[in-house]
Amino acid sequence: MTGILLSLHVIAAILAIGPVAVAASMFPVASRAALADPDSASVATTGMLHRIVRVYATIGIVVPMLGIATAVNLGVLGDLWILTSIALTVVAAVILTAVVLPAQRLTMAAIEGTGSVVDVATRLTRRLGTATGIFNLLWLVVVVLMIFRPGSTTGV
């Protein structure tokens, strides 16, 4: 059962968190292009990237659920590396839901001409790039913790 849970956890992380990381990273560049030229194809691209982040972020909820189930099954839920991973995952989720997605929504509103001023949206895309970078860095640390578990027998 542990092997199945671990496999599902890894597959879910690759298929759900991967697209969020990539699309969220591409969004600021595409949105700046869309803000500069609202008639360009980058408007559609920006909308698609925002949709990918929204949908896959929702699907991504399954990743920590499967991770916790796997940790319980392995009997390592109380280990420091797991608790650290859970804490980093919570921080990443907060950044995604409280910073990245709202900033993307505001930027999309500016691009579509229904929201904020373009200058504000342009400044927002800079902050969005930073927030996305932090989100991705947190996931990188979690992945490293999952591979090189402290006290594990993987050779580290």
Rank of each mutant, 00 (worst) to 15 (best):
A33C: 13
A110T: 02
R123W: 14
G60R: 04
I11W: 08
Q104N: 13
L88Q: 07
L15R: 01
A110Y: 00
V120S: 12
I82K: 00
T97L: 14
M26P: 00
R105N: 13
P19Q: 06
D37P: 03
F27R: 06
V43Q: 00
S31I: 04
L96Q: 02
L128V: 08
A23L: 04
G133E: 11
G3P: 01
G18V: 10
L49F: 10
V142T: 07
R32N: 04
T70H: 02
A71G: 05
M48P: 05
V120K: 08
T107D: 05
L74W: 09
G113C: 11
V63I: 15
L124F: 10
L145T: 02
D39H: 13
G67R: 02
V91N: 01
S116A: 13
P102C: 15
P102N: 12
A57G: 14
M26W: 14
I11V: 15
V141N: 07
T107K: 00
T114H: 13
A23V: 07
A92C: 08
R32A: 08
G133R: 12
V94E: 03
R127D: 05
S42W: 08
F27I: 10
F27L: 14
Y56Q: 11
T89D: 02
I134V: 15
G47N: 12
M65F: 15
L83C: 08
A92K: 01
A21P: 06
A30F: 07
T132N: 11
A98M: 00
D119R: 11
T58K: 15
S85D: 07
G3T: 09
V55C: 12
A69P: 00
L6V: 12
M108F: 13
P64E: 05
A12L: 09
V143D: 05
G115V: 04
M1P: 03
R32W: 02
T114Y: 11
R123C: 10
S31D: 03
A109V: 09
A92D: 09
G115E: 04
R149P: 07
A98K: 03
M26I: 11
A30N: 04
T97W: 09
I95V: 14
L6H: 10
R105S: 14
A93W: 00
T132P: 08
I4S: 14
T107I: 12
V99N: 06
V63W: 04
T58A: 13
D37V: 12
L15M: 10
S42L: 14
D39Q: 14
V144C: 05
S42N: 13
R54V: 06
L5M: 05
S116W: 10
